[in-house]
Simulated assay, not measured.
Amino acid sequence: MANHVVDGANGFVASHLIGALVARGDSVIALARASEEVVRRKVSDALATLHLNPDLAKKVQFRTFSLGDPALGTAAPDVFAEPCTYWHSAALITFFPRREAELHAVNVVGSANAVTAFTRHAKPGSRYVHVSTAYQNGTTHSRTLEQWPEYGHPSEFRNDYEHSKRAAEVALSQTGLARKSVVLVTRLGVMVGHSGTGRALSDLGLYDFLRVIALFARRTPGERVRFVCHPGAALHLTPVDGTVDRMLALADGPLDRPVRHLVPAVAVPVTDLFAAISAHLPVELVPVTAEDVEAEPFTRFEAIVNMRCKFTSPYLRHEYEFESRADAQPPPVTPRILDLLISWYVREGLPE
Rank of each mutant, 00 (worst) to 15 (best):
V288M: 01
M247T: 12
A276Q: 10
A75G: 12
Y128T: 11
K59S: 14
T64E: 13
N53Q: 13
H130S: 10
A295E: 15
S343L: 02
A14Q: 03
V293S: 02
D55P: 03
G125I: 03
L262Q: 08
S132W: 06
P77D: 07
F301W: 09
F95Y: 14
R63N: 10
G19C: 00
L250W: 07
R199S: 14
P154Y: 08
V28M: 01
T312L: 14
L31D: 04
C309D: 06
L204A: 12
V170A: 11
V212Y: 09
S313W: 13
T74N: 08
P264W: 02
A76W: 07
R211D: 14
A290G: 11
V60Y: 00
V38C: 10
M307Q: 13
E294P: 01
N53F: 09
L248R: 10
R211T: 15
A48H: 13
L50G: 09
Q147P: 01
A48N: 12
A234V: 04
R98E: 15
K59R: 15
Y128H: 05
L17E: 09
R211M: 14
F62H: 07
W148K: 07
E102H: 06
P124K: 01
A90L: 00
T49Q: 15
R257G: 07
H121P: 07
P70V: 04
C229L: 05
T186N: 13
A251I: 07
R211G: 12
N159F: 00
A217E: 06
C309K: 05
F118M: 00
I93A: 13
D7Y: 05
H4V: 07
F216S: 02
L184Y: 03
F65V: 09
P297A: 08
T140D: 11
A167N: 14
M247V: 12
K123W: 11
V305F: 08
A200E: 00
F227A: 10
G189C: 04
T175P: 11
Y151C: 12
Q329I: 04
V288D: 04
T334C: 07
F298C: 07
E100N: 09
Y135K: 06
N10C: 12
N53Y: 05
R120S: 13
T119E: 15
V263N: 07
A303R: 13
G176H: 08
L248K: 07
L285R: 00
T64A: 14
V346P: 00
G349I: 03
D256Q: 04
T144K: 10
T271I: 01
T85K: 00
G8P: 06
D7A: 11
